[in-house]
Amino acid sequence: MKHHYWEPPIALYLFLGGLAGGIMFLSAIFDSFVIPGHTDIFALPVLIAFIAICIGLVFLLVDLGQPGVFWRVFRTAKSIIKWGAVFLVIDTIVSMLFIVAFLGDSLTFMAPLSNLIKPIASPMLLVGGFFGLCIMMYTGIMLSTLKAHVFWATPALPVLFTVSAISTGCAAIVLSIGGWPAVVSLESLEAAAEVNHILHTVDIVLVVAEIIILLTMVLSFLGAGNITAKKAAKRWVCGSYAPLFWGGMVFAGLLIPLALYVAGSGVASAVVAPVLVLCGGCLLRFLVVNTDDRAPLPGEERYMGRIATHKNAFVKRWNYDGENEF
C-alpha cells in the first residue's frame, strides 16, 4: 500500500456527517414521537448538526482535487456518494431553516422570518430526521461497498457506523439540548430534562450495542481466513492501533462513558461521558478509514516500499519549466 488514499479530512467528514445525522434523527424521533410539542429545545442540537454538516462538507471539499467539479454530482450519477451528497444537502437546508425558525427568539430582526417558518419546524425536523438516518447509513454503506477493502466490505460496518452515529448524536444532544438560540420556556426545560434522562438510557444501550458490534467485527476478522483482514484486525487488537483501539476507543470512548452513564450523576455523566462518546466516535472513523488494507498483489508492498514519494528531495529539485542552472 503506497499511502492512504483517503486522508483525515474524509474521516472527519464521515464522523461529522454521522454526528449530524444522529442529532437530526434523534431530535426528530423525540420531537415527533416521544415528547411532542417542545420543538424549541432542539434548536441548539440542530444548530450543532448544521455546523457539523457544514464543517464536514468543507472537509470533503478540501479533500477534493478539483472541488469546482463537485456540481456534477447532482447532474449525472447514481453512485452512493451522489446520494450521500443529496442527503447532506437536504439536511443542510432543513437544519438551516429549522435554526432560522428559532433565531428570531434571540435576534429580533429575524423574528418575522422565524415566525413564518416556526409552524412547519416540527414536520421539517421529521424530514431532517429521516434524511439524517439516511446520512448515517450512507457513511457506512459507502465504505462497505468498496469490496477491495476487506475491513470495510462487511455488513457489520454500516451497522456499526449507524449505531455509533446515533450514539454520538445522542451525546451531542445531551450536551446541548435546550440552549440558544431558542428562548425556552420552563415546561420545555422540564421536557429537556426528561429527554436528557431518556437519552442517558438510550446511550447506555447504544454504547453497549456498539461495543458488541465493534468487538464482533474486529474479532471475527482476527479469526478470519482472509489474510488481509486478519492482518488488519491484528493491527487493531495487538498491533500498532492497539493502544488507540483498546485504550482510546473501547476503554475511554465506550467503557468509561458507559460506567459514567450507569453511575449516572453530575458533571461526569452530563458532560464527561458524552464528550468521551464523541471522541470515541471520531476515533472510530479515523481508525476505520485508515484500515484501508487491500489484498496486495505479489510484490506490491516491496515495490511501493522502495519507490520514492512526493516527499523525496529530488522530486522538486528540477523544474522543467524554470531557468536552466548552468
Partner: peptide
C-alpha cells in the same frame, strides 16, 4: 527524476539468512 523515482535510494542485496543473523530488516 522519472527514472530516479523508481529507485531513489541505494539498496544492497543480502540473503534473508544473513540478514536475520545480523538483525537487519528490509529497508
Amino acid at each position: 527524476p522519472g527514472i530516479r523515482f523508481l529507485y531513489p535510494d541505494p539498496y544492497f542485496s543480502i540473503n534473508p539468512v544473513l540478514a536475520e543473523k545480523l538483525g537487519i530488516a528490509y529497508g
